[in-house]
Structure formats: structure tokens, C-alpha cells
Design a protein around this nucleic acid. Structure first.
Lengths: 207, 207
DNA sequence: GTCTATAGAGGGATAGAC
DNA sequence: GTCTATCCCTCTATAGAC
């Protein structure tokens, strides 16, 4: 897995650091955080566990960097304050599409969000905040898009929308061929009276 | 946590066995399977890890027994072939209600279902089969209850229904006071045109 | 039925050589 | 910047005493 592009004249230290985070991402994705050892990460990145600990002070630090690196990629698609309600929903559907092409990333969040429900988990506050922020962006979007029929409130719709995505990911990981996550999410939006993009966006096909 | 009732003249071996499974359930619920050790389970049950291994051949065996014990309790609410479509949905909503009173049980399934997406996990086939069976019972129920408007197919509705429940559990575990799982599930059913029980059933309140 | 003792593997983290 | 060596801890599982 090459998770991030490498600059042309990248210093060796930076390069190793990136390799370590790529390996940590892949292994945490497969087995969660607690089941993966520093030695596992090191072996995958082609060095010893002491080598890893030269770049990161401890195991937890690698997790934090894995998570924040992901956020740098997704944040503009969700957190941009200039995003209109329909654009935000479009972007979230687009992320579902992309997830279908990145099972390791889906597995990372499925495994970690479950582990992190434990308040003692190092990523607990990260996930607590992640859900809060996502909700804070979804609620006004749903408030704008939902016709006020007898459906759910924007707050409830936001929770349902997020829950649906999370739950679909588990079923999709268990049997990728049997689940069309995008269709399921789009169907839910349509049931709410929101018309989402009907076909996968072509400009995202080759990412 | 006393998870099962104890018969009056229960032999000591059976009693210890039950205590071990109660402890395993509670600890697996809190931290998942892989993060819990036999010594953790043993200490919680008041014996040594060798004592545990007298009653169960290995760690994995405790997990299998924890899972199958839960199924003995829930199966009649879901798998009874004499159940009508509306009754099945009612029972599933009732299970959501009960889950609100048993966070450790919710945590068990959230943690294990995430871990078990890994095909190498000892509970992988268990969860694969569990989702399949649940779907096989939900699809005909939705087929009977869904008016054939432009909504999801019974197959898709079943997946969405299960996904919604799973995803809500994560958000609920992260912030129990902020999430009303029952209301969210009932709202989803109503959006599909299905009228579920409007209030928590009184005969389940004191279980 | 439960214990102690032990084997054998693997974990996170540190010290210091190169 | 990466290594080896080491510390000290925890793990699953087995053997055998009581």
C-alpha cells in the first residue's frame, strides 16, 4: 500500500517516517490497534521496532498520526464552511464511493471506532470529537434539505445517516460482493425526500 | 453482573463454569476478545487462569460459549417460524429497548463484530452466519410490510435496518445520554411506511 | 476442581554501539 | 538513523501436586 505520494527530494528521515505510518495504517486497518505490535509495524516497514521508536515516542503516537493524516485528506470534503447543503451530501456520498475502493481504510475506522467506545482507549476522544463535528456539519444541511413532513428531525436524520454508513461498512467488510454501500446510502437519502447524485461521479472514478 | 439465573442445587462445577462465562461476557464486552486475557477472566471470576482452563480447553472456547449463550436467549424472539411480520419487527424493537439497559451486551457485539470482519478471527463465521440468518428473517417481513412505493427493496431495507442498529450502537456507547436508539429505529421504520409500536412495551420494563 | 510452577512466545520501552 | 541487546512484563498453555 502506498498511502501518500512522495516528494521528489524527500529526506530519508521523512521517507522512513512515512513508510512507518503507511505500515501502521495497513496493520491497524486489518486488526485494530491493540492487536498490532510495534514489531509488526516495524517488520512491515522494513526496520526493527527500535527504529520505529526513534521516529515516534511510543505506540500510541503512531496511532494518533495515522488518524490525523487521514483527516487531512477528508477534511476539505466535509468541513469547508463554504460548502452548500447539497454539496456536503454529495461529498459524503462521494466518500462512500471512495471507501468501496479502499477496504483497508474502512476496516481501520470500523475496528478503531469499536475499540474506541472504551473511554480508556487512546483514540476515544478522537472518535468522540469526530462524530460531534460530523454531526455539527450534517444537521444544518439536513435542516435545509428536509421537507418538514412527518420525518425525522435534522438532528435525528444526521445520527441515522452516520449510523447507516457505519453499519453498512461492517456488512460490506463481511461480504464485499453482497453489499452496495453507495446504493444503500442513496436509497436512504431518497426515502428522506433528498435527491442525491444518481450516478457515481465520473471525475472521481480514477482517483 | 449476574447474567443467568442459578438453579437451586447447582453442582459446584456448573456454578464455576457459569461464573467464568459471566466474567468473560463482561470483559469481552468492555474490551473485545483479543485485548482480554485468560488471567483477566480468571481474576474476575475469582480463580486462577489454570482454573479457567480446567473448564474450557482454551480461550477461544470461552468466546464461543459466550456467544452461543446469548443466542439461546434472543433466538426465540427472532427465529420462531410462527412469528408474523409485524411481530418480528416488534420483537426487534423490543431488543433495541433491552439493549439500552444492557450496555455491556451492546459493547460485546460492537467490539466483536468489528474484530470479526477479519476472516482469521475465531468469531468470523459466527458473525457471517448471524447476519445472514437475521437477513433471511427480515426480508420476508419487509416484503409483507413495505407498501411498494418507490422505497428500497425488502433486501435493501433489511440491510439498512440492521446497519442502522449497528451504527447507532457505536454512537450510543460513545455518548449514551445523547442517543435514543429506540426512537431512531422507530423513526426509520415509520419513514419506510411501517407503523411500529409507539411506546415501550410495559411488560418488558422490569426485566 | 483448583492450585503452583514452568515453558515458550511475544509485548513496550530503554541503553548504548555503530 | 538504525541496529543489537536487554529489561521486565504479560500472554496461552501444559504438567503435576494437593
Amino acid at each position: 500500500m502506498t498511502d501518500t505520494e512522495s516528494p521528489r527530494h524527500e529526506p530519508k528521515g521523512e521517507r522512513t517516517r512515512r513508510r512507518i505510518l503507511d505500515s501502521a495504517t495497513e496493520l491497524f486497518s486489518r486488526s485494530g490497534y491493540r492487536a498490532v505490535s510495534l514489531r509488526d509495524i516495524a517488520a512491515h516497514a522494513g526496520l526493527t521496532h527500535s527504529g520505529v521508536l526513534h521516529h515516534f515516542p511510543n505506540k500510541e503516537s503512531t496511532l494518533i498520526h495515522v488518524l490525523s493524516r487521514r483527516d487531512e485528506i477528508d477534511a476539505p470534503l466535509v468541513l469547508d464552511p463554504d460548502l452548500g447543503p447539497a454539496e456536503l451530501i454529495d461529498n459524503l456520498v462521494r466518500i462512500v464511493e471512495r471507501n468501496t475502493r479502499t477496504p483497508w481504510l474502512v476496516s481501520l475506522y470500523v475496528n478503531l471506532s469499536a475499540e474506541a467506545t472504551d473511554p480508556a482507549h487512546p483514540a476515544h476522544t478522537y472518535f468522540y470529537g469526530r462524530y460531534r463535528i460530523l454531526r455539527e456539519h450534517l444537521v444544518p444541511a439536513f435542516a435545509a434539505l428536509l421537507e418538514d413532513r412527518a420525518g425525522p428531525s435534522p438532528e435525528l436524520a444526521a445520527r441515522q445517516f452516520i449510523a447507516l454508513q457505519d453499519g453498512l461498512q461492517v456488512q460490506w467488510l463481511l461480504d464485499p460482493g453482497a453489499v452496495d454501500m453507495r446504493a444503500a446510502v442513496v436509497s436512504f437519502l431518497r426515502t428522506l425526500g433528498i435527491t442525491p447524485p444518481s450516478a457515481p461521479s465520473t471525475d472521481e472514478r480514477h482517483v
